[in-house]
């Protein structure tokens, strides 16, 4: 415990490795009807601010469709930004659009199988990024690939196989090796274990945690599972419909969730006891027609008129650990919610 506060104080003084400010991403949504075309825009990411110290691991938690994958792709430069900046060590990645600065952020995709060319062997999949690394000489490639595969815990014997000949866990290790072979500073993991069996999940998570700590990688870990986030991340950011609704240290959020949505996320983890707990009603709203005010209000049991009228902004909770921020008008009334769920 004392160790963790020590490191957080230490990292506070450092400049952030990755800083994302006021990021907006939207897509054109063309609904084709017979002989007419309705164009509207889906606001997938709505003003996200994040800042990661070197060696930090941030968990981005939310339901599917909340915009967390889009945020990852936006940071990677795979989708165009509407507004906002992604700064790596203080310099904007978009302005210095050189290959080498882009290569300092790498990504592990959700579906390892789809993220690999089915016609390439493991070895050529992992070698491929090195073709675009100006610092890596041709003679070093084999060595770098072997190093990356070893770091990811991949069996050397299987390097000549094709993706479809590997199991899900092995495939994810190849994906990790490919992301690490360029020796990036920041790695974005987009649901790296959600497609795996529970037993493979545990192995991959342990491996990722190990790599993150030994290499002091800065990591953004995207998941919909609070348990997985808790296993690996030291900070969490909870996303709902394109906005971050709560962020702070993992333990703090797990113990004292301040946002009703986070509260329901953490109660839903306990599957054996769901019968006794009040459940979150309704479905996540569609990003094409987001609700006015607080996006969570249609499902929120403690909503008031203020929630419908006014969008809450992310603010400090006033707790001694000031890093805990929440975007809710009634974060002080969260205790009521806990009473509802326990007595029901």
């Amino acid at each position: 415990m004392t160790k963790s506060t020590h490191t957080s104080q230490e990292t506070e003084r450092q400049a952030p490795r990755l800083r994302i400010s006021n990021l907006h991403v939207s897509f054109a949504n063309r609904a084709h009807r017979w002989l007419q075309r309705n164009a509207s825009r889906i606001h997938a990411v709505h003003g996200v601010d994040l800042s990661l110290q070197p060696g930090a691991c941030l968990g981005l938690v939310g339901e599917s469709g909340c915009g967390k994958s889009t945020l990852a792709r936006a940071i990677m430069g795979l989708v165009p930004l509407d507004r906002g900046t992604v700064a790596l060590d203080g310099s904007d990645v978009q302005c210095t659009n050189s290959r080498s600065s882009r290569q300092r952020i790498q990504m592990i995709f959700q579906h390892a199988h789809a993220s690999m060319n089915p016609r390439m062997t493991v070895e050529s999949i992992v070698t491929d990024p090195l073709r675009f690394d100006d610092r890596c000489r041709k003679s070093e490639r084999t060595q770098r690939v072997a190093g990356a595969l070893q770091l990811a815990g991949f069996d050397e014997q299987l390097r000549g196989r094709y993706p479809h000949e590997l199991s899900g866990g092995q495939l994810q290790r190849v994906a990790i090796a490919r992301a690490l072979v360029l020796e990036p500073d920041v790695v974005i993991c987009d649901e790296p274990v959600s497609a795996l069996d529970v037993s493979a999940q545990a192995e991959i998570l342990a491996q990722l945690k190990d790599i993150q700590q030994t290499r002091s990688l800065t990591m953004i870990f995207i998941t919909h599972d609070l348990d997985i986030a808790a296993a690996i991340c030291d900070r969490l950011a909870v996303m709902y419909l394109g906005r971050i609704v709560e962020s702070g240290p993992t333990a703090e959020i797990l113990r004292h969730p301040k946002h009703p949505y986070t509260h329901y996320l953490s109660t839903a983890r306990n599957l054996e006891r769901t019968g006794g707990l009040a459940q979150l009603e309704g479905e996540p709203p569609s990003p094409t027609a987001p609700p006015a005010g607080c996006a969570f209000h249609p499902r929120c049991p403690i909503r008031t008129d203020q929630c419908i009228a006014q969008t809450p902004s992310l603010a400090s909770t006033g707790q001694p650990s000031s890093q805990h921020q929440v975007a809710c008008h009634h974060s002080d009334r969260i205790v009521e919610l806990q009473k509802i769920t326990t007595t029901d």
Binding site: M1, L205, D227, A231, I232, A251, L254
Partner: peptide
């Protein structure tokens, strides 16, 4: 394997 994930969260909550 099923308890691995949960245990991390539980220990985190118990330690703080």
């Amino acid at each position: 394997a099923a308890e691995f994930k949960r245990s991390a969260a539980i220990t985190l909550m118990e330690r703080t």
